[in-house]
Design a protein around this nucleic acid. Structure first.
Lengths: 189, 189
DNA sequence: CGCCGAGTTGAACTGAATCAAGAAACGTGG
DNA sequence: CCACGTTTCTTGATTCAGTTCAACTCGGCG
């Protein structure tokens, strides 16, 4: 179970078993059905999460009340509402399960304390943050240079798992197009 | 001169003077005229940079050979071509001065070595990376929910310095619209 | 002085949104 | 296990934000 998290961490940094155990000891296991909120807009996000099983999306509501999906997470992804978490301010985003989920969570207070005793943990989170920057830059650039038909193709090619598991209207919101237009793209060839 | 960097760092972390000096000792001061490349697409980025004076932009060329500005940096901003820097792979982006610039740079090899001896440095870069994530998320969401006229207003309101200093066609490329359309937005009221 | 890059203007065109309505898929209760 | 309502997906007509292209203006610099 927690083996899964260890494996993930080792992709980034070498932890001693003692360090790893101290870290994991602070994590709590949660199960949730689908369509349940992990965090709601306006709440303060006190945790970071590691998804063991299932599918989750982070979104906000625009002026017209449409859901705008900012990101998905699936197995072995780390997620949180970062700005809210760091500043301990009300979150712009909601986080919601799409499928039934199993995940681990760790409280900010615990994690901050661990940073002081486990230097490797600091490195681990630095490397994760850097990778998020890279992923976000890439997303921005892809959206900037591709028209929506190309985004659709790109997304389908590169993340086929999502395509199977995520309902169309959420994919549309992630691709920044309307469900109607996505539908017409799908059926245009 | 290097006082400026110290001040910036202290916004994030408390360094001892010895730590700070060890860090700064590895940094090199560079001056460059306007329209000069700091990094060209295809090169491997070996440094991170801290801008003391001037204005810089990071961009790439799309299929049609248009410059697409991914980000600007001005005084007291940290910048690099992150993916290239981390993976030591050819950069997708070019980095170019817009105005005459003065900046500090530090080599990856030096910085990596310092991470092992100065734990605070690890924290500093973790916090900077997290802030970049927040800024990028915000940018993505703004672009997603605003039409270009709103983006233009938002940008003008929130970053008036840029507006004075950056040529129109670069602002257009950052706003993801054509210079022609930006011009019509400017003159439509 | 003449040229070149930056910015402007307008006409024609198109990618994508909106609106409205129907078809299919899904799940819940009887 | 069928019937029903709800949610998701599709289809087509209309409209509009933003691009493209081409011609023109302006200011600066060699």
């Amino acid at each position: 179970m927690k083996q899964q998290l260890k494996k993930y961490i080792h992709r980034y940094v070498d932890f001693s078993d003692a360090e790893l155990d101290a870290f994991i000891a602070k994590m709590e296991l949660i199960k949730l059905e689908k369509k349940k909120f992990i965090l709601e807009e306006g709440e303060i996000c006190h945790h970071q999460y590691f998804l063991l099983e299932g599918l989750v999306h982070t979104f906000y509501l625009d002026q017209d009340g449409n859901e705008r999906t900012s990101s998905f997470a699936l197995e072995n992804w780390w997620f949180t509402s970062l700005e809210s978490y760091i500043k301990q301010s009300p979150s712009f985003y909601s986080i919601q399960t799409i499928e039934p989920c199993v995940f681990l969570k760790i409280a900010k207070t615990d994690l901050d304390a661990l940073f002081d005793t486990i230097p490797n943990l600091e490195k681990f989170f630095r490397l994760m943050a850097q990778n998020m920057v890279i992923a976000l830059q890439r997303r921005t650039d892809i959206y900037q240079k591709m028209i929506s038909k190309e985004r659709y193709e790109y997304f389908r090619r590169n993340f086929p798992e999502f395509f199977q598991r995520v309902p169309q209207y959420l994919i549309a919101s992630y691709l920044e197009i309307t469900p109607e237009y996505l539908s017409s793209l799908r059926n245009s060839k």
